[in-house]
């Protein structure tokens, strides 16, 4: 999957685990994050991880990921 090399450096980075099983699940996650906006993210499908760089609070990010109906856990800052 796509990896972000152009990290802006100063945005907080968060690691989440999201129960995704295939590309389609990852696509649904991408869509909810793109709808929120103001996020740069990288999805690691094999490890079921989502890395997000954003100004949004952890709560906002968690609420957004929860919209997918998938099991989501906040791992911590990265």
């Amino acid at each position: 999957m796509r990896y972000l090399y152009h990290s802006s450096g100063n945005l907080p980075k968060h690691e989440f685990s999201v129960d995704m099983n295939c590309e389609g699940c990852a696509e649904a996650v991408s869509r909810v994050l793109n709808k929120l906006g103001g996020v740069q993210f990288n999805i690691d499908l094999p490890n079921k991880k989502v890395y997000i760089e954003s100004e949004h609070s952890t709560d906002t990010l968690l609420t957004t990921l929860n919209k997918t109906g998938k099991t989501v856990c906040y791992i911590g800052p990265k």
Binding site: D19, M20, N21, C22, E23, G24, C25, E27, A28, R31, K67, T68, G69, K70
Partner: peptide, 16 residues
């Protein structure tokens, strides 16, 4: 559109 696996089905049924 966009459902690709059974977990998508379960997610939608669970939330809706």
């Amino acid at each position: 559109n966009g459902m690709t696996c059974n977990s998508c089905v379960q997610s939608i049924e669970g939330v809706i």
